[in-house]
Design a protein around this nucleic acid. Structure first.
Lengths: 214, 214
DNA sequence: GACTGGATGTGGACAGTGACAACATAACGA
DNA sequence: TCGTTATGTTGTCACTGTCCACATCCAGTC
């Protein structure tokens, strides 16, 4: 008879595993493992997601995870998905908060906020951001990518972005904010003071704005 | 009496260790270790630089490296330096090859080649590029950064880049090419066809050019 | 020319890791 | 009720980075 810790013993929306008592079977181990892995990924990045430590934190033996994930990589991918979801949500929330009426100014502002949200998330959550991009394939990026596409479509619709520049615009914008995120997040500029970083980000977003202007 | 393999037993420019015969003492182990580590880093990235494998390839026991490097990290940093040197050299070589006489066209072209060289190196050598940026501090980036600065100075001098845009121009350019390199090098776009990648790179460099124009 | 001290390389150990196999227990369905 | 299956555990393996004690060799001194 073993005593497991009783974190996340309730499967949300799934009545089968509602026993919150300690027992041989955890009840909702998969979720508990993912949550523990997310904590580690958030704190230490992809390499910090150590299977045995995750199991320890879920109060379970070192091999239990193999009943729910084929290998470590599959667990890391789950964490990456969480990071991408958070990133996507952060972008959407930021864009929704824009209160500008002039159509052109509004479109430009939404694109800028999209980029700002991307970078802000990367810097606020370097571990999860790195985990996300250590693993992700293009198909899983739908959320963030769609937000960027929508912002660019709006810039096109209001006449700010000329049609001949629409092709590949996602990529040039994405590259800019992604590079900034890497350089300042976990890269060579990660020790730079916040003040300087903010100024650099503003200028970067200004240049992106310039680059799209007709 | 042990038989070490006889790779890099000649210390370049150092006559003291010119015995190329096998012996207990390697002769130029530090260099041999760095070279083996560079090979691993080139093939598999920073995580592929495994101390014991490096030692194996240098024909030496698993602990020998500790006479030359404090720990694994110090060896990885050496590999990073090699990567940065190669990157810097690639940028310089590319810029030197520009044959354009018109001053403005020449300045723009040199900036473009600077960026192209950066991305090309990142994609040709994803392992070393990732190793370099897994470790590097700002101070060690002098080479590549100076080349970019010089190209931007030239754009300013010939009147293409307006003075009010000069501040922070390094960063917006760097972010763009760095982000592109990450996305296409080891990131979510690494599986994309070369044709598409080339088109995207051209458009990115076009947009950077646009963004600096007065 | 022998001796010795410091530099360099070796062998053995340890804790930590991802993974596999065999076993234990609980839940579920006939 | 009983076996089948899902889930968790223990034990083990190969591999890693790092530390320790020891071996070997080179260089400079008597």
């Amino acid at each position: 008879m073993r005593c497991n810790v009783d974190i996340v013993n309730i499967a949300p929306g799934d009545g089968r595993y509602d026993a919150a008592v300690s027992s041989y079977h955890h009840g909702n181990l998969r979720e508990a493992l993912v949550q523990a892995a997310v904590v580690l990924g958030r704190e230490k990045g992809p390499d910090g997601i150590v299977l045995r430590e995750v199991a320890r934190r879920a109060g379970v033996s070192h091999n239990a995870a193999y009943r729910h994930f084929a290998d470590r990589d599959e667990l890391v991918r789950e964490v990456a998905r969480v990071g991408l979801d958070e990133l996507s949500a952060a972008m959407q929330a930021r864009v929704k908060r824009v209160r500008v009426t002039d159509p052109v100014a509004r479109a430009r502002r939404r694109l800028r906020e999209t980029g700002k949200a991307y970078v802000d998330y990367a810097i606020a959550e370097p571990g999860l951001f790195a985990t996300a991009f250590s693993v992700v394939a293009l198909g899983e990026l739908d959320g963030p990518y769609e937000h960027l596409s929508a912002a660019l479509d709006e810039c096109l619709a209001v006449g700010f972005l000329p049609p001949e520049k629409r092709d590949g615009a996602e990529l040039s914008c994405w590259a800019g904010v992604h590079g900034f995120s890497m350089l300042y997040g976990t890269g060579p500029l990660s020790e730079a003071p916040k003040k300087e970083r903010d100024a650099d980000l503003d200028r970067l977003l200004d240049r992106i704005d310039d680059s799209l202007r007709g």
